[in-house]
Amino acid sequence: MKDSHVADDITRAAVELFATQGYVTTSVQQIVEAAGVTKGAMYHYFASKDDLLFGIYDELLTLQKQHLDEIVARGEASGAGVDEILRAVCVDVIETSIDHLREAAVFFRSAHLLSADRRDEVTRRRRAYHDAFAALLERGQVEGRYRTDIPVALLVAHFFSDVHYLSQWYSPTGPESRDLVAAQLTDLYLTSLHPADAGA
């Protein structure tokens, strides 16, 4: 049973080392020593240090995409409006990003060091998520709920810039709880989507 936790132990050790001393200066030997495993055990789960860095991001993105698909499917099945669905998606992205704050910080600081094929894979995976997110914005535009004077791509980037910046200022030990930050950032974002002449 212990073997089932080896990959998690290696990932946790790598995240800590990458965060404290950087990806480039962290050796495989340091990772396996910190995880309490052998190099053979590491290479059983990860082909390389590059593979390990990619895996840190892959885990988070897979989780968020799964949640997005579930939220959209559940909302459509229940007849929920696009505001309700998008709100749930935004809250989930922020909450899961905060739950994996250290991993996200490591990845965004070191993503440019990935091999070319891994960078391409990251781009493809992020685009798939962003396309699904954009589809909700486009639905809201068609329904007249969201502004159309700003390109959808910019509306998507506006939200995710806040998400990517979380690791620069948010602290789990600070005065703002994860749920409060998720709700407040989501409220600010959804308000920014309202047509400029709304209520006029």
Rank of each mutant, 00 (worst) to 15 (best):
Q184G: 01
T62I: 03
A77W: 00
I31V: 15
R124Q: 11
A132Y: 01
S4K: 09
R87P: 03
T123W: 01
D58I: 01
R139D: 10
T26H: 08
H194W: 04
L193F: 04
D8W: 03
V15A: 05
L166T: 11
A135R: 11
A35M: 05
Q30F: 01
G79I: 05
F160Q: 13
A153D: 14
Q29K: 12
R126T: 07
E138H: 03
E143R: 11
V32F: 06
V72P: 03
V89D: 04
A128Y: 00
G22Y: 02
F54S: 14
V89W: 01
P172N: 10
A134C: 04
D9C: 06
T25A: 11
S161R: 13
T62Y: 05
S115W: 00
H67M: 05
D187C: 09
E121S: 12
V15Q: 02
Q66D: 08
D179F: 02
A14L: 05
D9E: 09
S177W: 04
D197C: 05
L17H: 03
I94M: 14
F159I: 10
L53Q: 13
Q64P: 11
S78V: 01
D58K: 12
E33Y: 00
D50H: 13
A200N: 07
V15N: 00
S48N: 06
H67W: 04
D69W: 02
H130K: 07
H130G: 14
V28N: 05
F18L: 09
V91E: 13
Y165I: 06
Y129I: 07
T38V: 07
V37M: 09
F54H: 12
R119H: 00
I56V: 15
A73P: 08
H164L: 10
A153P: 00
G40H: 05
V89S: 07
V24G: 08
V122H: 03
D50A: 12
H158I: 06
L166P: 13
V93K: 05
L17F: 04
L101T: 00
F54I: 06
I10W: 04
